[in-house]
């Protein structure tokens, strides 16, 4: 059976070392570059005309813009629009990386915990910085919900702090695990097809996992979009906490 883990392996392409740090250009780096190249090229080419009546491509760019802007505006109000470029970059980067991973043989950047953890950590740090910069110590009110009886307040505050600190973990693991599990499942079902084909009498069963793989592929496309959306949505909600810790 083909190894379902093989697709996640990282291969060096150009070994690079900067100040003793391993900065080897790997297949992961290559797909990151492809992703940002696609995104940047798409948005620059799409907006080349800058016409009032948009072309189809320009419409797609505008719809994406409005989609993310609407998400952010709904969660944080107008004050959060300052962080729109960050939220937008997160969305398109994760979305493109997820979608690139759906192409057979391509590497999925977001299937590595370190990548999703770095992105979640970036959001977490931004929330902390913005929270303290905007509200000072009032930001700590986030952990002390109002309207809670005084005798359970310490417990609730403790729970709030723990849940706040575990945010980057759930934030990163959700995306990572979804991408990882999806790709493993696809590979496993693909492997079943091959195995059944070589199983002599039972080879007539081979279409069953094939149909399953087809259905899962559709599901994985949905997951690829949905996880980018969920990641962005959570980023917006966390940013709202940083901007309006009172509620």
């Amino acid at each position: 059976m083909p190894d379902p883990i093989h697709q996640f392996e990282i291969h060096p392409i150009v070994p690079i070392k900067i100040f003793g740090w391993d900065a080897t250009f790997t297949n992961s780096s290559l797909f990151m570059l492809i992703a940002i190249f696609l995104v940047a090229t798409f948005f620059i080419l799409a907006m080349r005309g800058r016409s009032l009546v948009p072309t189809r491509v320009q419409s797609v760019a505008e719809v994406t813009y409005e989609f993310v802007a609407g998400m952010l505006r709904e969660s944080t109000g107008q004050s959060g629009m300052k962080y729109f470029p960050l939220v937008f970059t997160l969305f398109v980067f994760i979305f493109t990386a997820n979608m690139l991973g759906m192409i057979p043989g391509f590497f999925t950047v977001t299937s590595h915990i370190i990548v999703t953890a770095a992105l979640a950590g970036l959001v977490f740090l931004t929330v902390l910085l913005v929270g303290f910069a905007k509200n000072g110590l009032h930001f700590l009110k986030l952990f002390v919900p109002s309207g809670v009886p005084i005798y359970v307040l310490p417990l609730v505050t403790l729970i709030e702090i723990i849940s706040f600190l575990s945010r980057p973990i759930s934030h990163s693991v959700r995306l990572f695990a979804n991408m990882l599990a999806g790709h493993i499942t696809l590979k496993v079902f693909g492997g079943f097809v091959v195995m059944l084909l070589g199983a002599g009498t039972y080879s007539f069963l081979a279409p069953l996992p094939l149909f399953m793989a087809i259905a899962l592929t559709a599901l994985e496309f949905l997951v690829a979009f949905l996880q980018a959306y969920v990641f962005t949505m959570l980023t917006c909600m966390y940013l709202n906490d940083a901007l309006h810790p009172g509620h």
Binding site: P12, D22, F25, T26, S28, S29, M32, L33, V115, A118
Partner: peptide, 12 residues
């Protein structure tokens, strides 16, 4: 693989 991924993620 963390170091090269982090570096390239930060760059890209």
């Amino acid at each position: 693989t963390f170091a090269p991924q982090l570096i390239w993620l930060a760059l890209t």
